[in-house]
């Protein structure tokens, strides 16, 4: 009598001649066993369509909500990056600064790294601009001298961010002949802190809903284990390994996750489509680029993968917790 060694297929594969052919047979047996579990666990879902559909629906919504929030966040961040580009610094010079000094200062500033361009608005030009505004003409005629200072408008590098702009402003402020620097920062900062807040909220919600998916799948698998208790006991009686018994439940969790992910992708796609009209109308009114972008094929794929991952996690937890407790008596 031989000892019961490893599984017949593996044990056989290790033994000497004909090893390769046996290994191949063993591998194909392994693949067939997994394929069988994969198909039969899907079959079980199909055999109770109503409860499976409800579970998949809950999973789909739990996955679609964070996906939509993330999409929103992504678009807010993209738009705020766009608007960052519009930020500029207005450098008001002392009235006493000579015209030549204005030019050299502008050149100097234009050379500094975070500055993309420096444009001079001379006092005369500013006055001309002013005059063009309705009602200002007569008022300005009353003045003997041009009261306006020279202004240098700095366009910073895109993506400099609020802090970078602030630092640049302070630096310029310290330069000789500069009276004051005006940063159009408030709204950039506001937008940035809104998107910071949004990002944190979205990830928190995503984490909570991800946990929901794990719990829902875990509970579904727990019920499946309970319903098939007798079958598990009998399989253990006739020599089923823990792996053999685990497999169909893990695959069931995988199917729930995959179907939930797929359905959530459809939901996200649908919502995206429904928002397309209003979004492009808004874009037209504000004359910006597209307001709503993504998630793209990769995003949908990722959603399915996340669903599968969370589904597997849920079923893994349920299986680890509830299968060991079932022993034949």
């Amino acid at each position: 009598m031989k000892r019961p060694t490893a599984r017949p297929s593996r044990g056989a594969a290790r033994r000497g001649h004909g090893g390769l052919a046996r290994l191949r047979a063993g591998l194909s047996a392994w693949a067939i066993a997994h394929g069988r579990a994969l198909v039969s666990s899907l079959g079980r879902l199909v055999s109770m369509p109503l409860s499976a559909l409800m579970t998949v629906g809950v999973l789909a919504i739990s996955l679609a909500l964070p996906a939509l929030f993330l999409l929103l966040l992504q678009n807010v961040e993209r738009l705020s990056a766009d608007w960052d580009r519009g930020a500029s610094l207005s450098v008001f010079l002392d009235l006493s600064v000579e015209e030549s000094r204005v030019q050299s200062l502008a050149d100097e500033l234009a050379q500094s790294p975070p500055v993309q361009a420096a444009t001079i608005i001379s006092p005369d030009q500013a006055l001309a601009d002013f005059r063009r505004m309705a009602g200002m003409d007569e008022a300005l005629d009353l003045l003997d001298d041009n009261p306006l200072p020279a202004v240098i408008v700095l366009i910073p590098d895109p993506g400099l961010g609020a802090e970078g702009l602030q630092a640049l402003g302070a630096e310029v402020q310290a330069a000789d002949g500069v009276d004051s620097v005006r940063l159009d920062l408030a709204w950039v900062e506001r937008l940035q802190s809104i998107s910071d807040l949004l990002r944190r909220a979205v990830w928190l919600i995503a984490a909570l809903l991800g946990l929901t998916v794990v719990l829902v799948v875990g509970n579904t698998i727990r019920l499946a284990i309970q319903n098939r208790r007798e079958e598990i006991v009998i399989a253990k009686l006739i020599g089923a390994t823990d792996g053999f018994i685990r497999r169909p439940f893990l695959y069931e969790g995988l199917w729930y996750g995959a179907l939930g992910g797929l359905t959530s992708a459809v939901l996200v796609g649908g919502v995206r489509l429904a928002l397309d009209g209003p979004a492009s109308e808004l874009a037209r009114l504000y004359q910006t680029g597209p307001i709503l972008v993504g998630p793209g094929l990769g995003g949908f794929g990722l959603l399915c993968l996340v669903g599968i991952g969370l589904g597997l996690t849920g079923s893994w937890l349920a299986v680890g917790r509830h299968l060991a407790a079932i022993e034949p008596k």
Partner: peptide, 17 residues
């Protein structure tokens, strides 16, 4: 499990699925 595969078991209540 590998031991149980070498031992066929039969029960009074059959234990069929």
């Amino acid at each position: 499990p590998y031991l149980r595969r070498r031992v066929g078991m039969i029960f009074q209540d059959h234990r069929l699925l």
